[in-house]
Simulated scan of single mutants.
Amino acid sequence: MSLFVEDNLWIFIIMTVIGGGGAAFMAGRGMAMKWRPIWMPLLAMVPLALGLRFLHFALFEANLTSLHYLLTDFVVLVIGAFLGYRMTLAKKMANQYPWLYEKAGPLSWRAKA
């Protein structure tokens, strides 16, 4: 049994949530800045999730073929990408079309009355 185990919460938080989630957030932000459709940053999370799974395997002796943890990593990355995408798109819509839209929160915009 290794010192590093698959269920270590700190490894998950540091590697997946902070590291992977930050990269996913920036990828979503970049896609929104180029006016890409929402499916593109979501599709980009597939290789990122595979790479993150490999880092867990290489650095912490985690199971490389664990579907459960791969899907968990993928869901966290998709959430990060979606947040980055929507936050950037809401800001761009309100800034680029100020006569039509205003921000209605961090993730959305609405038509001006």
Rank of each mutant, 00 (worst) to 15 (best):
D7P: 03
W10Y: 05
M15W: 06
V17L: 14
V17G: 00
G21V: 05
G21M: 07
A23S: 14
F25H: 04
G30K: 04
M31I: 01
M33Y: 00
R36H: 03
P37Q: 00
I38N: 03
W39S: 05
M40K: 12
P41V: 11
P41M: 08
L42Q: 06
L43D: 08
V46M: 11
V46R: 06
V46S: 04
A49Y: 13
G51R: 10
R53E: 15
R53C: 10
F54W: 15
L55R: 06
A58L: 11
L59E: 04
L59M: 14
E61P: 01
A62G: 07
N63V: 07
N63A: 09
L64H: 04
L67W: 13
L67A: 12
L67V: 14
H68T: 14
Y69D: 07
Y69I: 12
L70T: 11
L71T: 05
L71H: 03
T72H: 08
D73P: 03
F74S: 06
F74N: 04
F74K: 02
V75W: 11
V75T: 10
V76L: 10
L77F: 06
I79L: 13
A81L: 05
Y85H: 08
L89D: 02
A90N: 00
K91H: 07
M93G: 04
N95D: 15
Y97L: 09
P98S: 06
L100Q: 13
L100I: 12
Y101G: 08
Y101Q: 09
K103E: 12
K103V: 01
G105V: 08
P106L: 15
L107W: 09
S108H: 10
W109P: 09
